[in-house]
């Protein structure tokens, strides 16, 4: 009886505090220590990631936005899809998209397959394996612009813009080798070179550049595969190719999926490799911007004389949607094909 009377008596302030406390506990604000520890990372992420993402989306949907307008807060812009429409109808953007997709579709499968082959070979070599692993990893730690310049020199000396001199089209080690075997030298990247020649050089360069990371991942995967699977296969007189396709590849499938997905994501963001070969003209002399990519287009739109933030943002969002879709497809496919 005494208990009942205590319970029915009400203390409004106490009740209110209890409610607030329960609410705070619910949203975990009482874990204030944890939030303080996380705050440096959260603040940095908010400033350098969340805020730019928010602005990208905002700019993309603002019609005819100009950064100059920030000086006058009275100017407002309409919301609309104008930037997307403009970008998608703009031929140069479509060319950039095409370049990006071509490079992606060519380089990711080639580099993954080569990396797999090299990783398997490296894994089966006993002597010098450490040394060879280091050599194969070198491109990863080398500046990609520097590598690009070396590649440019191997194919043609770029930037001389000496289309009038015949010699310039036959320069470079690659052409020397072609000539040694009696072929005619090809104008790879100099003024007057063809689009597919340019793409070929880009593919070779990007594949070479992408190999070390993939080899590293796949080699790591291979070394964690139980050797007894191979002993078992050996006893059952399994041919080498069957060991590769039926044992090695399935057991490596999680790593292969990872390498392919990150490869596509990286491929769609291709930019610096083209700068490495062609410089920031993004194309051979006389064909400026011919090999430009999506990211290149975004940079150009921001840095151009007109500062087209809206179009750059729209392009960035389109790029994001493409990467998102491709990754989703990749994940769906790998879900069926990988064996964890």
């Amino acid at each position: 009886m005494a208990n009942e009377s205590v319970a029915t008596k009400s203390y409004p302030l106490y009740e209110a505090r209890k409610k607030v406390g329960a609410f705070l506990r619910k949203i975990k604000f009482d874990h204030w220590k944890g939030w303080i520890y996380l705050s440096p990372a959260i603040v940095l992420l908010l400033i350098f990631t969340a805020w730019p993402i928010f602005n990208t989306v905002r700019f993309a949907f603002l019609e005819k936005y100009s950064s100059l307008a920030d000086l006058n807060p009275d100017i407002t812009f309409e919301f609309g899809l104008g930037n997307f429409q403009y970008v998608l109808e703009y031929q140069y953007f479509k060319d950039c998209l095409f370049n990006t997709i071509i490079l992606c579709v060519l380089t990711v499968p080639i580099s993954t397959f080569l990396a797999l082959l090299i990783a398997v070979c490296l894994n089966s070599i006993k002597a010098l394996s450490r040394f060879l692993q280091t050599i194969y990893f070198l491109p990863y730690v080398t500046n990609s612009i520097a590598i690009g310049m070396v590649f440019a020199a191997m194919f043609n000396i770029v930037g001389l813009n000496r289309a009038d001199i015949n010699a310039s089209t036959s320069l470079g080690i690659v052409n020397n080798i072609i000539q040694f075997f009696g072929g005619t030298p090809i104008n790879w990247i100099n003024a007057g070179s063809g689009y597919w020649e340019n793409i070929f050089v880009m593919v070779v360069y990007i594949v070479w550049n992408a190999l070390p990371f993939k080899i590293l991942i796949l080699l790591g995967g291979l070394q964690s595969v139980n050797k007894q699977y191979y002993d078992a296969a050996k006893i059952d007189s399994t041919p080498k190719w069957r060991v590769f396709t039926n044992i090695t590849v399935p057991l490596l499938s999680p790593m292969i999926a990872y390498v392919v997905i990150t490869g596509f994501i990286g491929g769609f963001k291709e930019y610096s490799s083209i700068v490495g070969i062609f410089g920031d003209t993004m194309g051979p002399p006389g064909a400026k911007g011919r090999l430009n990519t999506m990211v290149g287009y975004i940079y150009d739109a921001i840095n151009g004389s007109t500062k087209q933030y809206g179009r750059a943002s729209a392009a960035a969002i389109i790029l994001f949607l493409i990467i998102f879709a491709v990754t989703l497809v990749n994940l769906q496919v790998s879900k069926k094909k990988t064996h964890y």
């Binding site: 007894q228 699977y229 002993d231 078992a232 006893i235 007189s237 039926n246 399935p250 057991l251 064996h339």
Partner: peptide
């Protein structure tokens, strides 16, 4: 080993997962 015609059962079975 492949030419000996043996069957081997490994300690941890080594079944292809």
């Amino acid at each position: 080993p492949e030419n000996r015609g043996i069957g081997l059962v490994f300690q941890n079975y080594a079944l292809y997962p």
